[in-house]
Amino acid sequence: MKGLRQVFRELVKDPMGRIGLIGVLLLILLAVFAPLLAHYSPEKMVSMPKAAPNQQFWFGTDNYGRDIYSRILYGARVSLEVGLISVGIAASIGFILGIIAGYFEGRIDRIIMCIMDILFAFPSILLAIFITAVLGRGIENTMIAIGIVNIPVFVRTVRASVISAKGLEYVQNAKSIGVKTFPLLMRHIAPNTIAPFTVQATLALSSAILTEASMSFLGLGIQPPDPSWGSMLSEARAFMEQAPWMVIFPILFIVITILIFNILGDSLRDVLDPKLKT
C-alpha cells in the first residue's frame, strides 16, 4: 500500500500527472473564486445581446446580453458541484454496497448484484434522462440521477477488490485470530479497495461532468438562469453563425475539463495500479 505522500510524489514526477493535477487545481480555483474573478453577475443582462469578445467582455456576451466570461466561471462551479456531489453519492452508496456484497457474498451479494445488473442494463445517459423525467429537472435532481447511474461501477470495483483482499494471507490470519467483522472490514479490507476506488472516482468525475453537460444540452439538466456549459451551448446553437463565441467557449471549457480529469485519472491509475501500466 502506498502512502498518500508517495502517490502524490509519483504523480508529480509523471509529466501527464503534473498536467492533470495543475489543471484540476486551476479548475477548482476558478470555481471557488468565481465570484471574485467574474466581472458581472452571471444572470445580469449587462450589455447589448451578442456583443463580440472585447476588453470589457472577454468572451463576448450571449443572446441576453450576459457576460459569457462570468457565466463560464460560474458554469465551472456548477459542473464541479454536480460532478463532486453526484460522484459522492455514487461512491458512498457504491462503497457500502460493494463492501457488503463482497464480504458477505451469498444471498445478499446476489441481490445487490442483481440490482446493479438491472441498473447496468441501460445505456447510462438513457437511464439518467429517464430518472430526471421522474424527479423533474434542476440541479439537485440532475445530481441524484447521475449519482444513481454511477453506483454500479463503484459496487463492482469495490466488491472485486474486497473479494481478492479476503483471500490475502494477513486478512485470513486476522480473521482466524478473531478480529470482529467491522474492524476487519475497516482496518484490513477497506484499504485494499482504495487504489481502484480512487481511480474509478476520478474517471467517474469526468463522465459525470460529461453526462451533466449532455443532459443540460438536451434541456433536461440544469435550468435557467443557472449557468451550465451544456445549457449555454444548447442556447448558443441557434446563434452559431452570428455569435460563434457563444459556442466556442463552452465547448472549449467542457473539453478541457473532461480532458484534465481523464489525464489525472490515467496517471493515478498508473501510479496506484502499476499492473495496468503500459
Binding site: S206, S214, N262
Partner: peptide, 12 residues
C-alpha cells in the same frame, strides 16, 4: 481528445 470531446460538441 476522442474520449474527452462530447458527441454533441463534436457534432456542432
Amino acid at each position: 481528445m476522442g474520449v474527452s470531446i462530447p458527441s454533441f460538441a463534436l457534432s456542432i
